[in-house]
Deep mutational scan, measured.
Amino acid sequence: KKIKIDLKKGPEGLGFTVVTRDSSIHGPGPIFVKNILPKGAAIKDGRLQSGDRILEVNGRDVTGRTQEELVAMLRSTKQGETASLVIAR
């Protein structure tokens, strides 16, 4: 099931960490939400869960991207702006 979640970045950030699983010589594996932090946009919104697979960030497919690339995409969202995620659960 795909779910679109918009998180408005506040002073505590987006409020979640990510982890890559099953990376191989063929490229990075899928990226999942690792933890929801006690402060930040994710816990206020309440929909994002540990174990959700991140498919898109701000309309860009993240398949084949590294964890570092995904984190850079999320960090490029400025405070007060919205990060738009599509996740699979």
Rank of each mutant, 00 (worst) to 15 (best):
A42R: 01
E12T: 06
N35K: 08
K2N: 15
K39Q: 13
D45E: 12
P30I: 08
K39D: 13
I43Y: 05
T77M: 13
D22A: 05
K2M: 06
K9P: 15
E68F: 02
R53C: 13
R47K: 09
L7R: 00
H26Y: 08
T82R: 10
L14N: 00
A88P: 03
R65F: 07
E56C: 10
T20Y: 05
I87Q: 06
T17N: 15
N58G: 11
G29S: 07
K44L: 09
D6W: 13
A83L: 11
V33K: 00
I36G: 00
R65K: 10
T82K: 11
G64N: 08
I3C: 00
M73D: 09
R89M: 01
G46Q: 09
K2Y: 08
L37H: 03
R89A: 04
A88F: 15
G29L: 08
G27S: 11
G80M: 09
G27I: 12
I3A: 02
V33C: 05
T20D: 15
P38R: 11
V18E: 01
L85E: 02
P30A: 05
K44V: 14
D22H: 04
L48Y: 00
F32S: 08
V33G: 01
I54L: 08
V86N: 08
V86I: 11
V18F: 15
S50L: 13
G64L: 06
P30Y: 10
N58P: 00
V19R: 15
N35P: 00
I3L: 04
Q79V: 06
I5K: 00
A42H: 01
G80P: 03
L74C: 07
G59E: 13
L70A: 04
P30D: 15
R65T: 05
K9Q: 15
K44I: 15
L55I: 08
I31S: 13
K39M: 10
V57K: 00
Q79F: 08
L37S: 10
N58A: 12
L48C: 02
L7A: 03
T20F: 04
D52E: 01
V62H: 07
I5N: 00
R60W: 07
H26S: 13
A41C: 07
V62K: 02
T63W: 07
K39P: 02
F32A: 12
E81T: 14
V57C: 11
K78Q: 05
E81Y: 04
P30R: 09
P28T: 12
L85M: 10
L74M: 12
K9Y: 15
T66C: 12
G46S: 06
T66F: 05
S84P: 02
L7C: 05
T20N: 10
V19N: 15
V33M: 01
V86A: 11
S50V: 13
K78S: 14
D6I: 15
K34Q: 13
L14T: 01
